[in-house]
Simulated scan of single mutants.
Amino acid sequence: MAGWSHRYARINDLDVHYVEQGTGPLVVLLHGFPHIWFSWRHQIGPIADAGFRVVAPDMRGMGQTSGPKDHREYDVDRIVADVVGLLDHLGAEKAVFGGLDFGLFAAYDLAHHYPDRAAAIIGLENPFFTPSRESPLTLAARQAERHFNHIHYFAAPGAADRDLAAAPREFLRKLFYALSSDYHYLDVWRKPPGTTYIDALPETPPLPWTWLTETELEFYVDAYSRSGFTGGLNWYRAMDLSWEYRKSYGGRRNPVPFFFIGSEQDTDLEAWHGDDPLSKLEQHHADLRDVRMIKNAGHMMQMEKSGETTAAMLEFLTGSNKWA
């Protein structure tokens, strides 16, 4: 932690916060929801110590980075502009991008638009854009007729924003646990339509857990208590816009070197990318370098199995099959 520097910049009409450490080739780590830069706390120092300049921003509307209230301001071209603007602000021609969830999708979008700005992508958990004839919010609404669906719950402004803002600690604690290997996340689908997300999530054992302390949870609680959840939820509300936008490069493969790290108990690999997604990686990535699967980890892999995840990232960055 002693090597972290907190920095602030005005980028793409946003007040952007990011953490930086180290010197050398640039590695940018992009988080998803409900995360902040702090989700990469175990990776920043070791990657910097290996000879890299590491930057972990708070993404649009989350943490200390501002975000518009209108979900239409979270579509693909604006998110890509955020990432390009960050590179320009850092004085960098390109970077290796590591990402999870929405952060990883931002890296995929960047690679399709500006492949010269991405030296490589290290993808955690989400292997590709999953082809679909049906828009994501339409699919979620149809599923929500049968059982609870978190995407549908998030889709309409209002209730979700208020529910989560009223109980940020309970929501974050329950969700982080539900996404870990200690729980089967898809069991939330057993809850009936109309259930709130907090009620759909399981109760948890008391903190500390083996991979999360009370103090670490407070980083997230403090961040979302100050920012609210609307910015993060707007990434979901823009999913149909992004789905429509990505049709312009549907069927094209990511052109930059790609490394994949998954976990054996990840809910996204189980439910959101079709059958046997690992066998389809080469259909989506033109330069697939390597694939690693981490045992006994769920979706929170970079925290839950931080040592194994960091080691895999470092091997991709520095090993014989590295990106350069």
Results as ranks from 00 to 15, higher is better:
258 F>C: 00
214 E>Y: 10
216 E>F: 00
233 L>W: 09
209 W>G: 02
209 W>T: 00
193 P>A: 03
196 T>N: 10
253 R>S: 06
227 S>Y: 02
234 N>D: 02
228 G>P: 00
191 K>C: 09
229 F>A: 04
231 G>C: 06
257 P>R: 02
206 P>H: 12
240 D>P: 05
236 Y>I: 05
227 S>E: 06
229 F>C: 06
216 E>H: 03
259 F>L: 11
225 S>E: 08
244 E>R: 14
220 Y>T: 03
223 A>M: 09
262 G>S: 13
215 T>S: 12
222 D>N: 12
205 P>L: 11
234 N>C: 09
224 Y>A: 00
226 R>D: 14
228 G>R: 04
201 L>K: 01
261 I>K: 07
210 T>A: 15
195 T>I: 05
238 A>R: 01
196 T>K: 05
221 V>S: 07
264 E>H: 13
253 R>Y: 08
247 K>Y: 12
193 P>S: 03
256 V>E: 06
205 P>N: 11
198 I>C: 01
257 P>N: 02
268 D>F: 14
221 V>L: 03
265 Q>G: 09
206 P>Y: 13
244 E>K: 12
250 G>K: 10
205 P>W: 07
264 E>C: 10
259 F>Q: 02
242 S>V: 14
247 K>Q: 15
223 A>T: 05
256 V>R: 02
247 K>E: 14
261 I>T: 14
259 F>P: 02
245 Y>S: 13
